[in-house]
């Protein structure tokens, strides 16, 4: 079997209990079980993780970089969407 026959998987690792799984990279594997074991060997050998998620790369849908302008720029001048934009009356105290 050639390696190019093996699909690509995206690997997400949770570094500690309570934290989110974070994307750490990708690897090739024949199936989900092998993907998780390969991820264990490739990405957790220095105690980086306590949990692994593997998602076949073809199932990841991404935004189009060419549309990044239309997608994200309109948010740049809308500071009022941040809660820090508003003065909070002193009587309310810390929210």
């Amino acid at each position: 079997m050639q390696q190019q026959d093996w699909p690509l998987w995206e690997i997400f690792i949770r570094s500690r209990q309570g934290l989110d799984h974070k994307h750490v990279g990708s690897l090739h594997a024949a199936d989900a079980q092998m993907a998780i074991e390969n991820a264990r060997d490739v990405y957790t050998r220095r105690m980086e993780g306590v949990s692994i998620w593997a998602v076949e790369s073809k199932y990841i849908h991404a935004s189009n970089p060419d549309e990044a302008g239309a997608f994200f720029e309109p948010a740049e001048d809308k500071v009022y969407r941040h809660p820090t934009f508003y003065d909070i009356p002193e009587a309310i105290g810390h929210m």
């Binding site: 390696q3 093996w6 690897l27 090739h28 074991e37 390969n38 060997d41 490739v42 050998r45």
Partner: peptide
């Protein structure tokens, strides 16, 4: 190793 992942394993 036959593939990088197994080389590391």
């Amino acid at each position: 190793g036959p593939v990088l992942e197994q080389d590391i394993a």
